[in-house]
């Protein structure tokens, strides 16, 4: 990851952490993680128990959407359906086919323009985390398996 991307990400992290604190979530970036890689503990609003662990990897920030997968633990495997939310467009354990993910944009070149185009303004990191939280809330925290 280039220096500018890293610096911009660092500037946006506090807002993400503030949001996650309001939803009993947490952002994790370990020393051994590559630049731009984060593990996000999230759970449906008002629920307790085992959180989802979203693995978010940014490459060029904020110009490109992140890769989004779900893991069974911080640093763990992403190939277990039970780690994934049962939400529309979340195709466990392969990808999240949504306009705010690298996987979704790669599968749908037509999303590059128009209403599904990636928005690089403001705080895209916060945008992705808020949107995933909304999807998990609507799924009532249900898991794919």
């Amino acid at each position: 990851m280039d220096l500018e991307s890293r610096l911009r990400l660092e500037r946006h992290v506090p807002e993400v952490e503030e949001f996650l604190a309001s939803t009993s979530g947490r952002l994790v970036h370990r020393p051994e993680d590559e630049d731009g890689a984060y593990w996000i503990m999230m759970q449906a609003r008002g629920q307790s128990g085992e959180p989802f662990i979203a693995r978010l990897v940014w490459t060029v920030y904020p110009l490109r959407p992140p890769s989004l997968l779900f893991a069974d633990s911080v640093g763990g495997a992403t190939n277990r359906p039970a780690s994934w939310p049962s939400a529309a467009g979340y195709r466990a354990p392969n990808d999240v086919c949504k306009p705010f993910t690298a996987e979704g944009q790669a599968l749908h070149p037509e999303w590059a323009t128009g209403p599904h185009a990636w928005r690089a303004s403001g705080n895209p990191f916060l945008y992705v985390v808020e949107t995933v939280q909304g999807d998990i809330d609507r799924a009532n925290g249900q898991r794919a398996a």
Binding site: A88, G89, C97, K98, P99, G104, H108, H116, E130, T131, G134, D135, R138
Partner: peptide, 10 residues
């Protein structure tokens, strides 16, 4: 108020 989005059709 906070504006949020939900993709309903891919």
């Amino acid at each position: 108020l906070r504006l949020r989005t939900e993709t309903t059709q891919g």
